Simulated assay, not measured.
Amino acid sequence: MKVCLTVAMVSAILVSSVGVAQAAEKTAQQQKMTQCNQHATSQNLKGDARKSFMSECLKKESKMSGMTPQQMKMKSCNTEAGDKKLSGDARKTFMSTCLKKA
Results as ranks from 00 to 15, higher is better:
Arg91Tyr: 13
Val18Tyr: 07
Pro69Met: 03
Gln70Val: 14
Ser52Glu: 11
Gly88Val: 06
Ser96Gly: 03
Leu86Val: 11
Ala28Trp: 02
Pro69Gly: 00
Phe53Thr: 08
Lys75Met: 15
Cys57His: 04
Ser87Arg: 15
Ser65Ala: 11
Lys32Val: 06
Met9Asn: 01
Leu5Asp: 11
Thr41Cys: 05
Val10Asn: 13
Thr93Asn: 12
Asn44Ala: 04
Lys73Met: 12
Gly66Lys: 15
Gly66Gln: 15
Ser17Leu: 15
Leu86Thr: 04
Glu80Leu: 15
Cys36Asn: 04
Lys92Cys: 06
Cys36Gln: 03
Gly88Arg: 07
Lys51Ser: 14
Lys2Tyr: 14
Lys75Ala: 08
Ser52Val: 08
Ala28Tyr: 07
Lys84Gln: 13
Asn78Glu: 03
Ser16Gln: 07
Leu45Val: 08
Arg50Val: 01
Ala90Thr: 01
Glu56Arg: 07
Thr6Gln: 13
Asn78Tyr: 05
Lys63Ile: 13
Glu25Pro: 08
Asp83Phe: 00
Thr6Glu: 13
Thr79Cys: 01
Gln30Cys: 10
Gln22Trp: 10
Lys75Ser: 05
Leu5Gln: 10
Lys46Arg: 05
Cys4Pro: 00
Cys57Leu: 06
Thr6Asn: 11
Met64Arg: 14
Cys57Tyr: 02
Gly88Met: 00
Glu80Asp: 14
Met64Asp: 14
Cys77Glu: 00
Glu56Leu: 07
Gly19Asp: 03
Lys32Glu: 02
Gln38Val: 04
Gln71Phe: 04
Phe53His: 07
Leu45Tyr: 02
Thr27Ser: 09
Val3Gln: 10
Ala90Val: 10
Lys59Leu: 06
Ser55Cys: 01
Gln30Lys: 09
Asn78Gln: 06
Thr41His: 06
Arg91Phe: 13
Gln70Asp: 15
Ser87His: 09
Ala24Met: 15
Leu5Cys: 09
Lys100Glu: 12
Ala49Ser: 11
Lys92Trp: 03
Thr97Phe: 07
Ala24Thr: 10
Glu56Asn: 08
Pro69Ile: 00
Ala81His: 10
Lys84Ser: 10
Gln71Glu: 15
Val15Glu: 00
Ser87Tyr: 07
Lys46Ser: 03
Ala90Gln: 08
Asp89Glu: 14
Glu56Ala: 11
Cys36Tyr: 12
Lys46Val: 01
Glu61Asn: 15
Arg50Gln: 04
Gln38Tyr: 01
Gln35Ile: 12
Ala21Tyr: 02
Cys4Asn: 06
Ser96Thr: 11
Gln30Arg: 10
Val3Phe: 11
